[in-house]
Design a protein around this nucleic acid. Structure first.
Length: 190
DNA sequence: AGCGGGATTTTCT
DNA sequence: GAAAATCCCGCTT
């Protein structure tokens, strides 16, 4: 039987990004399980001036050009980690940034990591990485295996998804490659 | 509620 | 040497 996750992720980032909404991320750490639901995503690819993979394959963005289903973690602003799910075929520098998630299980652990509660646990790309203890050690990790697993879910109806422009970038600002579950309180920003 | 700046380090010019 | 796919705190209205 074909690998469901692989088939899903081997499509272009702008196709995969809305399909990842509602999917489950499962993090195993310190004997605990944290489960969250993906609420908000953004697509990036190499034709895209806002992407780290734009016209250049470097040691940092190597993972983005690798096989789908890996995790691309980058460090930014001197403080924060953000995580992407690599999409497309090997050799294509594309990925989907996970911008917000909704906690399902392991909320106490997330509170300890974040020293916050409520929406502040995971309503932003760097916040959710801190909540799930995602850092450089997980760069390149295969999301089919522990300690971080991506579980596909049936695609949401397009009527429940809002598509708009991306956040926090200076180039290619007009591309409508941000997707979120309409009305969900964990969306990072309206 | 909204604005402004600091944190702090990797990456590429 | 500057910018960066961000967040948080403190100040002002």
């Amino acid at each position: 039987m074909a690998n469901e996750l692989q088939n899903l992720l081997e499509q272009p980032a702008e196709i995969v990004a809305p399909l990842l909404l509602g999917c489950i991320l499962e993090r195993k750490i310190a004997g605990q399980t944290i489960r969250v639901r993906i609420i908000e995503t953004e697509a990036y690819d190499e034709s895209d001036a806002a992407s780290h993979s734009y016209k250049a394959k470097t040691s940092r963005t190597n993972v983005m050009f690798g096989p789908a289903g890996r995790l691309y973690v980058y460090f930014t602003y001197g403080i924060h980690y953000c995580c992407n799910i690599v999409t497309g075929r090997e050799g294509e520098g594309s990925a989907v940034l996970v911008r917000a998630v909704e906690p399902l299980e392991g909320v106490e652990f997330m509170k300890m990591n974040r020293n916050k509660s409520g929406l502040d646990l995971s309503n932003g790309p760097a916040k959710l990485c801190q909540a799930l203890t995602i850092d450089k050690n997980l760069n390149g990790h295969n999301l089919q295996h522990s300690p971080l697993i991506l579980r596909p879910q049936p695609a949401l109806s397009t009527t429940k998804i809002t598509q708009t422009t991306r956040i926090g970038i200076a180039k290619a600002v007009d591309r409508p490659w941000r997707f979120y579950i309409t009305g969900n309180p964990y969306v990072s920003k309206i």
